[in-house]
């Protein structure tokens, strides 16, 4: 089990050191919320801020989504769990941040919990990794010996459905959407400004929270995240009406991995699969 205390202490120690030495302008991590269960994304900019840093099993936020708020070239330290580190890699691939501007404070974490349901966050709703893929400083001990479950295992049940049933499932899910865009806000890969759904010319879809507009929003969002979603599961945890967006994202990620042989956010030198091609890609993928 992860020693959250130890990580919190190390986080404070490193944050203090980095800020004191002027190595970074800001430390992106977690701060106290109104109670233990609701920590908040927190940007520590001064040494006094460091005392407010926390880390516990509810610190699920993917802090990578805050990286693009700072001017290009800002030196940033960022707390990164496994999925968050993949998000960072993906953002580096997309040239949204530079690796050399970041100090990645890696957090190996097993036993993170969903604050709404208290369930342990694992491969059912996320990529199911526990150690950061990339880091400069590790804030805790690496986790070994956990059972490795494919993040795509949960899909079997949905893939087995017949198409009518699957359509009915997704339609009923999408119909719940209230278009708060919390999913988009939580997602480190949703950085477009303006988002296609906010454009007026062309107006891609109705903006009212009704069936057709919802469907258009989500199908397009799934597409825009193809080969980019790093399966942190934050979109689904952010959703106030509990739409299992992760299922669709996982499915698209799985297909991309099968077709193009590369998972999102694993290697700095990769290119996102949809801005890349191989001459020898097969036409079979279109069947």
């Amino acid at each position: 089990m992860t020693d959250f205390r130890q990580i919190e202490n190390n986080l404070k120690k490193e944050a203090k050191r980095l800020l004191e030495a002027g190595e970074v302008a800001v430390v992106l991590a977690y701060g106290r919320g109104y109670d233990e269960k609701h920590p908040m994304p927190f940007a520590a900019k001064t040494i006094a801020d460091v005392e407010s840093l926390v880390f516990n099993e509810y610190c699920n936020f993917n802090m990578a989504s805050y990286l693009m708020r700072y001017p290009w070239g800002t030196k940033i330290a960022i707390a990164a769990k496994a999925a968050d580190s993949r998000a960072i890699i993906q953002l580096v691939q997309e040239e949204k941040v530079r690796r050399e501007d970041l100090v990645i404070l890696g957090i190996p974490a097993y036993g993170m919990k969903n604050q709404k349901t208290n369930e342990v966050v694992d491969s059912k709703t996320t990529g199911g990794l526990y150690n950061p893929v990339i880091y400069d400083i590790l804030l805790g001990e690496e986790i070994h010996g956990q059972k490795i479950v494919s993040p795509y295992e949960v899909l079997a049940e949905y893939e087995a459905m017949d198409k009518e049933e699957r359509w009915a499932f997704w339609k009923s899910q999408m119909d719940k959407c209230i278009r708060c865009y919390a999913c988009r806000k939580a997602c480190p890969m949703c950085y477009c400004d303006p988002c296609f759904i906010d454009q007026n010319k062309p107006r891609w879809a109705d903006k009212a929270p009704q069936s057709p507009g919802n469907m258009m929003y989500h199908l397009t969002r799934f597409h825009h995240l193809a080969g980019r979603c790093i399966d942190c599961g934050e979109c689904s945890r952010a959703c106030p009406v509990d739409i299992p967006l992760y299922l669709f994202h996982k499915k698209v990620a799985k297909e991309c991995e099968e077709m193009f042989g590369q998972a999102a956010g694993m290697k700095l030198e990769d290119k996102p699969v949809l801005v890349d091609f191989r001459v020898e890609d097969s036409d079979k993928i279109l069947e």
Partner: peptide, 20 residues
């Protein structure tokens, strides 16, 4: 060559949504 990859994804998405 870009379109081939992109439209392959479109196809998978439509399929998983439940369209024929």
């Amino acid at each position: 060559l870009y379109a081939r990859r992109r439209l392959a994804v479109t196809k998978k998405i439509l399929e998983f949504a439940g369209l024929e």
